[in-house]
């Protein structure tokens, strides 16, 4: 692991939670020319045999993020290289620190309650980034903002998965967090091809109406306990996109009496697609993903892909 030594002169709070991953192709080997990180972020890279492929695990100490944590990860995937970004177990977002609330006079201390994760990834031509984390699990009262930006050169490819579960359902916490906001933006050259912005927020506004009580997150989302967005783009994943699109086109919906346990949709983009999934159980969604993304084995190898969706 290479620590950024120049960083020690910068105030530590500015560096907290930052990380840098730079992957390049040397001959047939994918080599990390940089893999640095600061608490509470941790990056691990297991050795794998597959040519041109590397895996990096994005971890946090304690297996989750608390209010005030700020992750800022920059990733650069060089031409020809293939990078899998994975996590180990779902990313838990713990509740806001209540103590700070009363004293939140300054905007800075208001920020202290929030958890923010920012990922900025640059992908070169002929390179591939697979971002296949475990789902985010927001605990009761958690406040989470996430922005992921993917800057692709023409000819670059990505698969990005962004998913969330209802929470610690075993503890009776079901869609009970304060806020989850996730923005995924994909640029190809200087064109924004997709901006997916999703906001799940507890409503607090007083309506004062006897007819229309506010809809809680659970009212709105509660039929399912896991929602996922999957975006595929670029030449290396065309076979997977084609297979998915054909499968989707063959679906026929007749009148149903009860909602399905699992449901998905697909929308085509030029050179890509956006898939959305919802399942009564997280396992249903995971099973679908594992099965549907099998085709990526031919791009990154069976052994590498086996590490996703475990």
């Amino acid at each position: 692991m290479v620590m950024d030594t120049a960083a020690s002169s910068v105030p530590p709070q500015k560096l907290a939670g930052t990380g840098n991953i730079t992957l390049h192709l040397h001959g047939h080997q994918a080599v990390f020319s940089e893999l640095s990180y600061c608490y509470p972020l941790k990056l691990l890279s297991p050795r794998i045999a597959e040519r041109a492929v590397a895996i990096a695990y994005v971890l946090s100490y304690g297996g989750g993020l608390v209010g005030g944590d700020r992750i800022n990860l920059r990733t650069d995937v060089g031409s020809g290289a293939r990078l899998l970004l994975l996590t180990q177990g779902s990313t838990k977002i713990f509740k806001q620190r209540v103590g700070l609330r009363a004293s939140s006079v300054h905007p800075a201390s208001a920020d202290g309650e929030r958890t923010i994760q920012v990922i900025d990834a640059a992908i070169s031509a002929d390179a591939l980034l697979l971002l296949l984390p475990d789902p985010v699990t927001c605990f009761s009262d958690a406040f989470y903002n996430q922005k992921q930006t993917f800057r692709l050169e023409i000819g670059a490819s990505i698969v990005l998965l962004d998913w969330i579960t209802a929470g610690r359902v075993s503890r009776g916490e079901e869609w009970d967090f304060s806020r989850y906001c996730s923005i995924n933006e994909v640029w190809v050259g200087d064109k924004r091809v997709a901006r997916d912005a999703q906001l799940l927020e507890k409503q607090t506004q007083q309506s004062g109406s006897k007819f229309v009580p506010l809809r809680s997150l659970k009212d709105r989302l509660g039929h399912y306990s896991c929602y996922a967005t999957l975006l595929l783009y670029g030449p290396l994943v065309v076979p997977t996109i084609t297979t998915l699109a054909q499968r989707y086109a063959s679906v026929q919906v007749y009148q149903q009496n009860v909602p399905p346990d699992f449901v998905w949709s697909l929308a085509s983009l030029e050179n890509g697609c956006v898939v959305r999934l919802a399942g009564k159980e997280t396992e249903l969604v995971k099973f679908w993903l594992r099965d549907s993304l099998k085709g990526l084995e031919s791009v990154v190898g069976i052994d590498a892909l086996r590490n996703a969706f475990v």
């Binding site: 906001c181 923005i183 912005a197 999703q198 906001l199 799940l200 927020e201 709105r220 989302l221 039929h223 399912y224 929602y227 967005t229 449901v263 998905w264 949709s265 959305r276 999934l277 919802a278």
Partner: peptide, 10 residues
């Protein structure tokens, strides 16, 4: 932002 993922799918 969208606020109703189920609505998007359906």
């Amino acid at each position: 932002a969208t606020t109703w993922p189920l609505g998007e799918i359906l």
